[in-house]
């Protein structure tokens, strides 16, 4: 399958020519396929945020290419602008970017910048509000009256309203309580299923990644040392630990059980698999 979004030998160096020079990305080859649910993990400073800002042309590569549908997004001004619209980016703590008088107007900001007509904007605002889990009566409120979690939903709706083919979210559940996390992840999943959109989630929560992602890309020191299905990635427990990351707690337990001499599969990473593995073990005894 052809990737929808791809980087080729992408490099990014900050503050070139000063003592603060810093290489944030080194020869990164990243691929996202249509309709996939992709997770990017890495600890702070590994280059995750820099990478995703290249994907929708907010940052210009120092060298290398970013391709959307196989075309360089920096080829001309039109391609760059299209990349901004086709690849939606929700920043970390996006609730701090709200500025309009009403939630409705704030969600409409993106579509308006795309110069859509009023009816299309109205349709998109309502659809985006639905996907982000906002109710109709909230649309006429001031965004500053809402709670933190609701504000975040408004910000996510603001990006969904642009109708992106690829939706990138940087730590969408950071600072939320467990119920809020679940509910936001469920809303994102719904959007993914309904629109067959490509979702890229940046996180350092292995537990969240294990549950939602089809494929995981691990970033460390400006590079991508590991990628694959959660099962493949979590089988490299030692390497992950060396990078300051860990495998999900369930996987840790199974690694430990195996170390204690029990014949279990150590690539287990969901509760369901764990239950089956343990029942199978019991039957064998």
């Amino acid at each position: 399958m052809e990737p929808i979004l791809e980087t080729k030998k992408l490099c990014c160096t900050y503050s070139v020519g000063t003592p603060f020079e810093h290489r944030a990305l080194i020869d990164v080859d990243f691929r996202a396929y249509p309709g996939e649910y992709l997770g990017i993990i890495g600890h702070t400073g590994s280059g995750k945020s820099t990478l995703i800002q290249h994907l929708n042309a907010l940052l210009k590569p120092s060298s290398g290419q970013v391709l959307l549908h196989g075309e360089d997004i920096w080829a001309n001004a039109k391609a760059t602008r299209m990349a901004r619209f086709k690849v939606g980016l929700v920043f970390q703590y996006p609730e701090y970017q709200l500025f309009e008088e009403t939630v409705y107007k704030d969600i409409a900001f993106g579509p308006k910048n795309m110069r859509l007509d009023a009816r299309e904007i109205d349709r998109r605002v309502h659809e985006a509000a639905y996907f982000a889990g906002l109710t109709d009566d909230q649309l006429q409120k001031s965004p500053f009256e809402l709670s933190g979690g609701q504000k975040r939903r408004v910000a996510i709706a603001g990006v969904i309203a642009m109708g992106p083919e690829v939706l990138i979210l940087d730590e969408p559940t950071a600072g939320l309580d467990p119920v809020g996390r679940e509910s936001i992840l469920r809303n994102i999943r719904q959007f993914h299923d309904a629109k067959n959109a490509t979702i890229i989630i940046v996180s350092h929560s292995m537990e969240d990644m294990a549950r939602v992602a089809d494929r995981i890309v691990v970033m460390n020191d400006a590079r991508i040392p590991l990628q694959g299905t959660p099962r493949e990635v979590f089988s490299h427990a030692e390497e992950l630990r060396a990078m300051g990351l860990s495998v999900p707690q369930i996987t840790q337990i199974f690694h430990r059980l195996r170390a204690l001499g029990l014949g279990v599969d150590e690539s287990v990473y969901t509760l369901k698999e764990a239950k089956e593995a343990l029942l199978a073990l019991k039957r064998r005894d």
């Binding site: 907010l58 619209f85 920043f91 996006p94 970017q97 993106g110 795309m114 603001g158 990006v159 642009m162």
Partner: peptide, 14 residues
């Protein structure tokens, strides 16, 4: 903070 908000609004086509 200004840098961050600017990027976020640019991502929405500002």
């Amino acid at each position: 903070e200004t840098d961050k908000i600017m990027s976020a609004q640019k991502a929405r086509g500002a």
